[in-house]
Design a protein around this nucleic acid. Structure first.
Lengths: 191, 191
DNA sequence: CCCCTATAGTCAACTAGTTGAATAGGTGCG
DNA sequence: CGCACCTATTCAACTAGTTGACTATAGGGG
């Protein structure tokens, strides 16, 4: 159960309700750990039972009340201990690559569309990451930030996401070119 | 259940036994879809029951007999249809990034060790990918290969893995530098 | 002969993740 | 005033993935 630790790490950046956490996961953590809101709520329950987080209800007038979660001392300690243990190798699940693996170069239409969409999504992500980055840097330059800030972890993981999306765009672009050239070539020789 | 399709895609590159498939997943497909041998055997059973693959026993004298699986026509058709459907967004699970997210810059030792190991693993993967690449190209240059071969899919997914590992190495190297500089700096000002 | 490694596969128990729906208050639009 | 959408959460059922142990054959080294 490692989502636990991803949740603890996310809460280490500041308290949050389940709903807020879901969004935090969606924009930031989703890079390296994906989870649905249901999963988050469920794991928050368990973390609370285990005393690693504590909740308090915040009454709101303009919207429904919410339960805000904070790390407890035990939670911080568990997170620290987790950091010392060896990490499992990363796991990926990418349907697009499965589809591409099996693509018939004579009928690349669906893959071409999917690749185009993928590039679009990567660009959007990149734009969001760049915004987040500016907000983190808050005017400082990167070197200064990395020397001073307490938020180096989130910055470095954000950079991982950023570089990943950049690579992805470059790669998907060559896929697009390769498959269109090839398809054009086939039509050229047969028509 | 999408491992089904990853298995079908892997079998599209040629028949294999469960054991061989496990290795194929380990070196090639693991990039974009991870699975344990147990999972593969289980899914192969199901795929056989559903008539998407068929098995035959190959008697071997120097080692235990094996069951070799091939795609059936229905399997090929399912794989083709799968390729037309929209792909789910990729999902990642990377413990190292969780640990980095929550790292205390004053105690970066464990993360530094993990980052170093990660770079090593990426280099090994890269070396294996490059070997696979040479084998695929078989003397041809890339352009010629991409114009002629039936294996463009596997080549392009291999390139995704290759670029991913290269990016990973570059990124992890900056992480290493950032954290060591920072730690040296702290010791310098306090000692 | 014993142990180690590789091939080849199976079983059972468990944990984690996905999907779909339901509840409930509030805001903004036409 | 009804409908869509956002905040905020929960429940239940299901599917997928992980862990650990276990069976078997065969080859090589000491």
């Amino acid at each position: 159960m490692s989502l636990r630790h991803a949740v603890l790490a996310a809460l280490a950046q500041g308290e949050a309700s389940g709903y807020e956490l879901a969004k935090r996961f969606d924009v930031g953590v989703a890079n390296f750990w994906s989870a649905t809101p249901q999963q988050l709520y469920r794991d928050l329950e368990r973390l609370e039972q285990d005393g690693l987080v504590s909740a308090r209800v915040v009454e709101q007038s303009r919207r429904p009340n919410k339960r805000v979660f904070v790390l407890t001392t035990a939670g911080r300690e568990e997170l620290r201990a987790f950091g010392e243990r060896p990490a499992k190798p990363p796991a990926m699940r990418d349907e697009f690559l499965v589809k591409l693996q099996a693509v018939d170069p004579e009928r690349p239409e669906a893959i071409l569309a999917a690749a185009t969409e993928r590039i679009g999504r990567s660009r959007e992500k990149l734009a969001r990451y760049d915004q987040l980055r500016e907000r983190m840097l808050a005017g400082r330059d990167e070197d200064q930030f990395l020397r001073e800030s307490d938020q180096v972890g989130p910055y470095l993981t954000l950079m991982a996401g950023r570089m990943y999306e950049q690579t992805n765009i470059r790669w998907a672009t060559t896929v697009l070119e390769t498959l269109t050239n090839r398809h054009a070539g086939v039509r050229g020789t047969s028509g």
